[in-house]
Amino acid sequence: MSDTIKYFLEESKMPKTWYNIAADLPKPMEPPLHPGTLKPIGPDDLAPLFPMALIGQEVSQDREIEIPEPVREIYKKWRPSPLYRARALEKHLDTPAKIYYKYEGVSPSGSHKPNTAVAQAFYNKEEGTKKITTETGAGQWGTSLAFACKLFGIELDVYMVKVSFEQKPYRKLVMQTYGARCVASPSNETDSGKAILAKDPNNTGSLGIAISEAVEMAAKNPDTKYALGSVLNHVLMHQTIVGNEAILQMEMADDYPDILVGCTGGGSNFSGLANPFFRKKF
């Protein structure tokens, strides 16, 4: 029996497509509704905020979508990420179960977030976006997008929840190192931020307020777009590189998972790992 700990996939074997689970869902999803009209949202509603390529991916029914070559070249800086067999943890727990984990902390920003940040920056660059705005809570997403925007020469303003901005100065400095501008939210730069500060000058912010500020700036400026780090279909799809690699690495281990586990906030790291495995189940 082999005592392999790490399963490394060669760069040349890195999957060239993302997996779009919409093509295989046993029951299709309901369309998203416009918060004002409560009618289904169309591409025109999203166009001020996102490049058309990403809007297309959001509603695509294509099973596989090619990862553009420039994105794959950047992925190679840390991908394929290793699959580990947690032999020491298994021994500690004294369990007959086999535990594997896909480790996304090897990326430049230390999380899975660059998998979509690089893709979103690429499509924005293709469509002439000069500047991107976004929000960040703890800073993982802001850091990842800062890295990606610098590689494609796009300016980035990050609205960071004020309480985190003050408590986590190092993440803010990483964003600055990558060349992004990080603003404590609520700020005096937007109407939504000003309105909140007028009511409560000591407001420590929330993710919702930071999103409002970032969306407002993108909606007001034609050369500025907005980027989201989770929740949307296209963001989850960009993360499927994780599961596509894991399937090949589980083959290298001559094993297959009975149980998949992921944490979910917006849902992207879980979907990135799990969706390609759902493909085999549906």
Binding site: Y84, L89, E90, L93, D94, T95, P96, A97, K98, I99, Y100, Y101, K102, Y103, E104, G105, G110, S111, H112, K113, Q140, V242, A246, M250, D255, Y256, P257, D258, I259, L260, V261, G262, C263, N269, F270, G272, L273
Partner: peptide
């Protein structure tokens, strides 16, 4: 928890999780 459940039931299941960041 899934691994401890396997231990309780004497099952050798394969578990895969996403360690999404450090």
């Amino acid at each position: 928890d899934a691994a401890l459940e396997c231990k309780k039931n004497g099952e050798s299941k394969t578990i895969l999780f996403n360690l999404c960041g450090h």
